[in-house]
């Protein structure tokens, strides 16, 4: 009897071991560096939290640096190790590289936030509705250009400074900003300047000064670290800046940065990575691309900071009203993809 029981337990253990799925190993590929980039800090935090809640799951963070030419080789190397069942990243440029890698390493799965690539069975992408995100800061710029913030004369002018033209900016952010500006200050003029890189704060400051001299009441920089130059110029000229992706702008220059349209990337990455790890490589999420926005809780306007709370009540009420309309569905800015 004892021998039979021992054999039964041994067999049970052996079968459990043989059928147990290997613990998932997740790699976060950061197309840049984590430090100093709130969006990538959120990416890592979300993935780390998800992995910590899956028994046995491990997480590795690899920084890819800023040279786009090296990203394909680095992602290929990650996949080729055979160590990782899921590679997580965030950047609109990443899906086309992952699609190439997935063709050679079909056993590896990818989840890429802030991007759009439907139809690849190895890749799940989620695109933020940046038409809404742009609309929110555009509306705030309109409040500034119509004189409802400073109390001075209305300039009816606003500016955009972008590091480079890219599809997300051209198709979503810029049109969204323009619509928001028009909604708050009908007929207001918008000028866009292209910086040419994501780091030159001095040149960004020069461009911003030019726009302020032209009459822009507020500027939205989409220029990475160079955005600091726009903040400096605005501070010295007594004008306003809008901020994108996170609320760190409020702390950069209180009183100058008057509005931040934020992404809840940590929330998105946490939820998706956890779901993908729980469902495994056969998850039906792979192959799909979805758009998420204000109504889903992944795009928002940061309205709790003292810099924002110090604005005139009427302006805040108008801004909060726009956010509420987007959340309720009364205002819909549909995005079908990129």
């Amino acid at each position: 009897m004892h021998r039979i029981a021992t054999s039964f337990i041994s067999l049970s253990l052996a079968s459990m071991l043989s059928f147990a799925a290997p613990a998932p190993k997740v790699c976060v590929f950061v197309p840049g560096v984590v430090s100093g980039s709130p969006v990538y800090e959120q990416l890592v935090a979300g993935a780390r939290r998800a992995a910590s809640e899956i028994p046995g799951a491990t997480l590795k963070v690899v920084e890819g640096g800023f040279n786009q030419a090296e990203w394909l080789g680095k992602i290929s190397s990650l996949a080729a190790t055979g160590e990782f069942s899921l590679i997580v990243s965030s950047n609109p440029a990443i899906p086309e590289l992952c699609a190439e890698v997935a063709g050679s390493f079909p056993e590896v799965r990818f989840f890429i936030a802030d991007s759009w690539l439907p139809g690849n069975k190895s890749i799940h992408t989620v695109l933020y509705n940046q038409l809404e995100q742009g609309y929110l800061v555009g509306f705030m710029a309109g409040l500034a250009s119509s004189g409802r913030l400073a109390g001075g004369a209305a300039s009816h002018k606003a500016g955009l400074i972008v590091a480079q033209h890219y599809p997300s900016f051209d198709k979503l952010i810029a049109p969204g900003f323009e619509r928001g500006l028009e909604a708050a200050d009908p007929g207001a003029a918008l000028e866009t300047r292209v910086l040419g890189n994501w780091y030159d704060a001095t040149k960004a400051s020069e461009l911003a000064n030019g726009l302020f001299d032209w009459g822009a009441a507020a500027i939205l920089p989409i220029a990475g670290g160079a955005g600091q130059g726009v903040v400096s110029a605005a501070t010295s000229k007594g004008r306003f800046v809008l901020w994108f992706d996170d609320d760190s702008g409020y702390r950069l220059a209180p009183g100058t940065v008057i509005g931040c349209a934020v992404l809840r990337q940590d929330k998105l990455v946490y939820e998706r990575v956890k779901a993908l790890l729980a469902q495994g490589p056969a998850s039906t999420l792979y192959g799909s691309a979805v758009v998420v926005g204000v109504r889903d809780g992944y795009v928002d306007f940061a309205s709790g900071d003292p810099s924002y709370l110090g604005l005139p009540a009427a302006a805040r009420a108008a801004m909060d009203g726009q956010v509420a309309r987007l959340k309720s569905g009364a205002l819909v800015l549909p995005v079908a993809g990129l």
Partner: peptide, 23 residues
């Protein structure tokens, strides 16, 4: 493309791979 790159080349315009999937 969201990459700062020229359009991809056709397969016939590229150097053949010797040991795919390696580069």
């Amino acid at each position: 493309s969201n990459l700062l790159a020229m359009p991809p080349l056709s397969e016939g315009a590229r150097l053949s791979l010797i040991a795919p999937p390696s580069p």
